Simulated assay, not measured.
Amino acid sequence: MSQEVRGVIARGKGAPVEVATIVVPDPGPGEAVVRVQACGVCHTDLHYREGGINDDFPFLLGHEAAGIVEQVGAGVTDVEPGDFVVLNWRAVCGNCRACRRGKPWYCFATHNAAQKMTLTDGTELSPALGIGAFVEKTLVHAGQCTKVDPAARPAAVGLLGCGVMAGLGAAVNTGGVTRGDSVAVIGCGGVGDGAVAGAALAGATTIIAVDTDPRKLEWAKGFGATHTVNARETDPVEAIRELTGGHGADVVIEAVGRPETWQQAFYARDLAGTVVLVGVPTPEMKMPDLPLLDVFGRGGALKSSWYGDCLPSRDFPMLTSLYLQGRLDLDAFVSEEIGLDQVEDAFGKMHHGDVLRSVVIF
């Protein structure tokens, strides 16, 4: 029997979100129904509401979530009812050319639930990132459920489902930060601070946080930044070079998603260094006008990081263990815990930089 639950939807571009009744079908083959316990309010959800991803309205928002598996469909063997899981949007297929090359974190054919959740009038919903977790219960592909230690707090480890993993993975997986490296992170919201935390975990000795908001720079210190640069007051490229012996950082992570900050990242890295783009640009943004000789002459690597190049089955349990050991402070990312009807207010707080993460608690 299908179930009716409460969830947050975006009906149209720019319209305030609303709480509606959502119909969740029984799981089919390869699917699972998860009772959501906590879900973070991510900037990607705001992108969906603003039409910055696509125009497949109405959207069922929310995707940074943790909860309990309630039902599974035929053929599901990796999870069972009662399992505590973090939801992911990279359920790898195992068969595409990336998976066959032994690089499943690049999977080009990730799975989502085959069935659709709907409104009570039958209108099909588009779940954000194939998840849709601002809802009491959600239907996902079973491969989107990653089991982690149930001792972990859902509000904290649920953030591994997107923002924290994106930033931390941009440093560790994509950027290859290792002990003794110098790292600069431009943009210190939830994703940028995830990158700061990842650089600290990896043993970077110089971690430079760059932002225009003094509050965010203070937050970055708590995650391991050794230096801060207010880009409203100081040229960030010159400041990063000065803090790295005049050379530039070994790895520069751009967590804003704008051409001008990407250009700053390019010139703030050392020769043969690495630039990682993890901030999400909007469709109309173009690459900055860089002399091709500079691209050639500086060497190194220019990379984009999609979901922190993570493999959820590998990374989520490991990072949860580090959290439970006190070595990764996921609780510090949780600025406030809110109810389902406060998501629109949370978008406003996020837009004004008042929070790292608001987390909906069910």
Rank of each mutant, 00 (worst) to 15 (best):
V140H: 06
L324W: 11
V229S: 01
A170D: 03
V256G: 05
G222S: 10
V360K: 06
T228M: 04
R215W: 13
A142C: 10
A166T: 15
V196L: 07
G189Q: 06
N95T: 13
R232A: 15
R49M: 13
I53Y: 00
F223I: 04
A249Q: 08
V164N: 11
L201R: 11
P27W: 10
V33P: 07
Y307E: 09
R327G: 05
R90F: 02
A301W: 12
A114N: 11
G194R: 04
C162N: 03
P25M: 02
A225Q: 08
G279F: 09
I207A: 00
V5N: 09
K147M: 09
V177L: 08
R179S: 15
G30V: 04
T320V: 06
V5Q: 15
I22G: 11
P317Y: 03
V185R: 01
V191K: 03
V280R: 10
K349S: 13
I53T: 03
W262Y: 15
A346D: 01
V191R: 08
A268D: 10
E260A: 11
T118D: 13
G348V: 00
G297E: 11
D193M: 15
A38K: 05
L328S: 01
C107Q: 00
V24R: 09
P27M: 08
R269K: 14
E64M: 09
I9C: 11
A151Q: 14
G194D: 02
G67H: 04
A74R: 11
D329T: 02
